[in-house]
Design a protein around this nucleic acid. Structure first.
Lengths: 112, 112
DNA sequence: CCGAATCCTACATGATACTG
DNA sequence: CAGTATCATGTAGGATTCGG
C-alpha cells in the first residue's frame, strides 16, 4: 500500500526530501559536484558503503535524472557518473540547508 | 552502532536531510508556517497520521529547536505548537526545493 | 483533549560472497 | 573494474488500545 494522496506541492517536496534523506545520496551528489567520478573513485570517497548499496543509490539517482552513467567499451571497462543539469542545480539548495543548519547549531564545530 | 564519522559539512546537511525526510515532518512544518496550531487541529490537517507518530514527530521537531510547545493550564487543556525562528527560516529552503522539483518534473501536474 | 503503551510489519541498510 | 546475489537485522512507521 503506497502513501496516501496529498496535494502536489507538499507531495513533491516531501518526496524529494525522503529520497535525499536516504543515506549516501546527498554525499554522492556532493562529491560529484567537483566533477565526474568512476565507480571505484566514488567508493574510495564513501568509506563504509557496500557495493550493493552504492549500486542502488547510483541507480536511484540516475533514474530520477540527477546523474548520467556512461560506459567505455575498452578494457578494463570504465563506468563514469556525472551530474546532470538538474543534479547540479540541487547543489546550491543543499548548501543553503547546510548554512542554515550551521547557523542553527554553532556548537557542531567540535565534530572531529 | 551509529553512523561512521564524516566531515562536519556533509554530516550536518545529511543529518538534517535524513530528519526532514522522515514522513510528516516537512508537512507539519508546512502547516505551521501559516500560524500556531493545536494538536487536534494539526491532526485534522494530517490525514492518516496516528497519534503515536504525531507525538513522535512533534517531540522530534521540538527537540531539534524547530518548534515550541505551550500548554494551557485550563480545562480541557490546550497544547499549542508554533515555529521557532529557526523553523520559520527553514520554510524558504523547502520552498526552493519544491520549485526545483517542479521545474525538474513538470509532468507532476496531473497528481489529483 | 492530548497523548502514552503495546504490538506488529515492511523497508532501509549492511555483511558477505560471487561474476561478466 | 564494476557490479549482482543472498542473507541478516535494525528502525521507521502504523494499528490498536488505554490513561490523566
Amino acid at each position: 500500500m503506497p502513501r496516501r494522496e496529498r496535494r502536489p506541492a507538499e507531495c513533491l517536496a516531501e518526496d524529494w526530501l525522503a529520497f535525499l534523506g536516504h543515506r549516501w545520496n546527498a554525499l554522492i551528489l556532493w562529491h560529484l559536484t567537483e566533477g565526474p567520478l568512476r565507480y571505484g573513485e566514488l567508493q574510495d570517497r564513501l568509506p563504509g558503503i557496500t557495493p550493493k548499496v552504492q549500486s542502488e543509490r547510483l541507480a536511484g539517482l540516475t533514474r530520477r535524472g540527477l546523474l548520467v552513467r556512461s560506459v567505455s567499451n575498452g578494457f578494463p571497462r570504465e563506468v563514469t557518473y556525472r551530474l546532470t543539469a538538474q543534479g547540479q542545480a540541487l547543489g546550491p539548495i543543499i548548501l543553503q540547508l547546510y548554512e542554515w543548519a550551521k547557523a542553527s547549531s554553532p556548537e557542531a564545530e567540535n565534530i572531529t
